[in-house]
Design a protein around this nucleic acid. Structure first.
Lengths: 240, 240
DNA sequence: GCAAAAGTGTTCTTCGTACACCCATGG
DNA sequence: CCATGGGTGTACGAAGAACACTTTTGC
């Protein structure tokens, strides 16, 4: 003992870990959820797709590392958008070379998120999630698992937060917001009830007064994200 | 560059981190939520209370490390009970001695959880959470923040999962289960509607056929935790 | 008998669901 | 004028909130 708890230990006696951040970056494009991937150049898993990510710097916060890696590897930033910690993956064998603990983050951004330029942009690409999750596992390391967890987190957070607006342009129509829900949940929603629910929930969306006719049909009101983060009561997906 | 992403790096070139697990262990006792703490023996924060935790071993999974630390420091185990990852805290200055990334876990156990014997049991103690969270911060490092996050997670998970049973003995009455909710949420619930809701939700609780008169009044049916983890529709706390 | 907690029944209201219907544009 | 999506009104049913009432124990 003597290394139990941060008290009474020898600074040179603890095991050294590599700490990385990995990013599950989702966007909604063409009525499909897409995730940002990079192509690995080297072993292990050379040639395979992976989630973007990399080592945390010595004096860098975890979230700052996630933002930096995103910019370096894909040239994207998250304004507008959303970033949150997802979970940490640290099974001993997850990287065959060494002990790596990876703090996975979930990011949501509107599409098109600037045509992925800068940094390693050449190797960064969007992929539709359903195809990527089919057997056999197509992603390097335990990234399929991380992707699956990220998708589940995103799905459930749409229910009780106003997070869906992070997938939308700064100004959006209720129909566009509904398309986000329908895509992420893989489920049709009644346009009329959805409209009432969203506009009736205080702080979810805020009317700009302007309208647009993109998408055809009668001009639609444009909305901004409202101030509220949590939605109560939640928007329920059918239990079917 | 060259260290961006797990591809193409020099194994000796990444920054070395210490990785620890910290535990937010809650129980419900005397109608108050209590958290398990240890008293720090050494600097920094000598004499202050802290969450139990310690370094992850080289060949050890994160969850295994959490379970081991809990046993070593407090002699507790989590059967019955519940353990899940909470979040990871890695701000550069959070430990003044070195760069430590801590994977916090949330654990729930029934009370009385065996009188905290074994290991460093002498320094482990239960404290009521509200008093611990008052200003000024009483906990070492960023443990007040972790505790606050753990409490919030526990509160919200009671809404949409059957997790409250993890605070109960293997067999419990509906009244005892209700006391868990009332304590964690700090809010009274209607006993009659609560009873209907809980027994009417498939898979939440399962009748044993036995009854008990502990707690006085008419004998109450005893229940076991049901198989279901998620609750739909959720049990809502008043928005007030 | 009385207090205390368990459990059931009933009413009211709120809210989700389904769908009829009208509106305002582009082609 | 018609197809397309936007938005409102309304009726029905399920579920939560409030509470009257009965049950079964300990003291």
């Amino acid at each position: 003992m003597g290394e139990r708890s941060p008290s009474g230990y020898d600074p040179r006696a603890f095991p050294a870990f590599a700490v990385t951040v990995d990013l599950v970056v989702f966007t909604v494009r063409d009525r499909e959820v897409h995730v940002l991937t990079v192509r690995r150049a080297e072993e292990p898993f050379a040639g395979r797709l992976a989630l973007p990510g990399g080592f945390v710097h010595v004096d860098e916060d975890l979230e700052a590392a996630a933002l930096r890696e995103l910019t370096e590897e894909t040239g994207l930033d998250l304004v507008p958008g959303h970033l949150e910690q997802l979970a940490t993956y640290g099974a001993p064998g997850r990287d065959p070379r060494m002990r790596v603990v990876s703090v996975a983050h979930l990011a949501l951004i509107p599409d098109p998120p600037a045509p992925v330029a800068g940094g390693d942009a050449a190797v960064a690409a969007w992929h539709p999630v359903p195809r990527l999750l089919g057997r056999p596992a197509r992603l390097a390391f335990d990234h399929s698992r991380i992707l699956r967890d990220g998708l589940e987190r995103a799905r459930s957070k749409l229910e009780y937060t106003s997070l869906a607006t992070a997938f939308c342009q700064p100004e959006f129509t209720i129909g566009e917001l509904r398309a986000v829900y329908e895509t992420v949940w893989g489920q049709r929603l009644d346009p009329r009830n959805f409209h009432r629910k969203v506009t009736g929930t205080a702080g979810f969306v805020e009317a700009t007064g302007r309208t647009t006719t993109r998408g055809g049909g009668r001009p639609a009101e444009l909305y901004r994200p409202g101030g509220a983060a949590l939605m109560n009561p939640p928007l329920l997906r059918a239990s079917s």
